[in-house]
Design a protein around this nucleic acid. Sequence first.
DNA 1: GCTTGACCTTCCAGTTAGGGGAAGCCTTAC
DNA 2: GTAAGGCTTCCCCTAACTGGAAGGTCAAGC
Lengths: 127, 127
Amino acid sequence: MNISGAAKAAGLPVKTVRYYADIGLVEPAARTAAGYRDYDDTSLRKLSFVGRARGFGFSIAQCRELLGLYQDEHRTSAEVKQIASARLDDIRAKQRELQALHDELEHLVGACCGDERPDCPILDYLS
Amino acid sequence: MNISGAAKAAGLPVKTVRYYADIGLVEPAARTAAGYRDYDDTSLRKLSFVGRARGFGFSIAQCRELLGLYQDEHRTSAEVKQIASARLDDIRAKQRELQALHDELEHLVGACCGDERPDCPILDYLS
DNA sequence: GCTTGACCTTCCAGTTAGGGGAAGCCTTAC
DNA sequence: GTAAGGCTTCCCCTAACTGGAAGGTCAAGC
């Protein structure tokens, strides 16, 4: 299967699939005589795997680790869980941060009349 | 005041202050004979303003707009409120996205034993 | 007056995870 | 045979900095 077929199957842009091949994350099974990337079933499954992992916000480095575990017969679920837990912690940290920003900004926006006058509690707060 | 003093006063890294000068966001009031950036009271206030706005997650472009309004006698609070509301909408969208990721990933992590065996619902879900 | 160390300057490269587009080869359909 | 479309590599671009190198400047101490 050529790159556009693989991209479609994995639900990724062609550029992204090429990028993953460039950085050695998911390499095509082979190249055709003309130099075209050729994806087989295994490489296709890896592409989809990475696509879903990226959807969870795992970094490329984490995807690389997860992919390694995915292909490792002797992995332990503890190793996987540790990576996923780290991501979960990141998400929770980001959520707390966003919540604080949200509350503060919502308060300011609520206090601003939004009319034709120049007086503005938002600018007051920033200055 | 030289750049390290200004950076300290605004609570920003020196590199960042230099960057803001480079992109014309907050320029120093003058240069000394030796070419050193020289910050006065006004430029210091702008630096702090931008630092706080960046803390809210406003983009550099939004900071530029806010700074323009801050210095504009004829601004309307509506203009400010519009920018802030846009940022608030962004935050809320990000929060919804993170919440969905959080719930799904928390569910998977909770279902993973995290022991020595290779069986893992997280990998199962990704593959 | 000289040295030393801490400043300052500019410039270049790298970061994440790709996106856009050019120049040129390959394949497929008509 | 040719034209359209797909593929290749290569390079530049993004946001908002950060790190580092090479070299000029300044203040303190001897």
